[in-house]
Design a protein around this nucleic acid. Sequence first.
DNA 1: TACTGTAGTTCAATAATATTGAACAATAGA
DNA 2: TCTATTGTTCAATATTATTGAACTACAGTA
Lengths: 119, 119
Amino acid sequence: MSRPLAHPNIEDVTVAGILHALADPVRLAIVSELLKAESGLNCTQMTDRLEVGMPKSTCSQHYRILRESGLIVSERKGVELTSRVRGRELETRFPGLLQSILKAHEQEMMKTRRRGRSG
Amino acid sequence: MSRPLAHPNIEDVTVAGILHALADPVRLAIVSELLKAESGLNCTQMTDRLEVGMPKSTCSQHYRILRESGLIVSERKGVELTSRVRGRELETRFPGLLQSILKAHEQEMMKTRRRGRSG
DNA sequence: TACTGTAGTTCAATAATATTGAACAATAGA
DNA sequence: TCTATTGTTCAATATTATTGAACTACAGTA
């Protein structure tokens, strides 16, 4: 919470970086949740929603990787750090990319649920 | 070249698996090349095209990861192993996913070239 | 200023993956 | 069988990821 929170310039965002960030199931779920949320979510809120026993250091690292890949922007609000997806910028930089990945993810989640794997 | 070359069933292909496979710049380039090629490419041909000094064991591993993720199908032709992208199947399973990733990749390559980074 | 509670980061030890040279296996052709 | 070609597997090495514990930052209270 000390450093100035480096976000990459949108032109420096790479496809490989985005794919690497989203290749982790937890991070994919995080981005999915962030898109559903109206005005960002902090680590504590995210941990509650995902219902995985995620240590806060792990959440912090996931957020960092998402931030460094250019997928999210984080903003300090008092003691919290609220993050949200850089939707418009990413859409301009790589049209359709994030949408199709999230769409595929949703599709997969639905099939998994139908098979009875989780809730 | 001995084992029966296990390819996952298309229903077992996961988004995370695909993203992980394509998160590596070399593998992303491989898939891009395979899509350009008309009837598949083997490791030797791929190594020539990519113009990176890629050891054959490395190429073999990349092909294996792409195969196991469900992105490509490999077929023995004599002493060679020719691989191609499972385009139609993937399009059915996750519509638009592969296309948008490759489109983003092409876009990125164009910008990089304009900046003068490689050829 | 000091104290308390909350939120998140950093460190560092451990675990899991990735890389690749070298040895090996498979096939074609002579 | 011998040789050339293609690709796989092994195993040592290097790179990344995971996470508990210690630490930093901020807000509120007094």
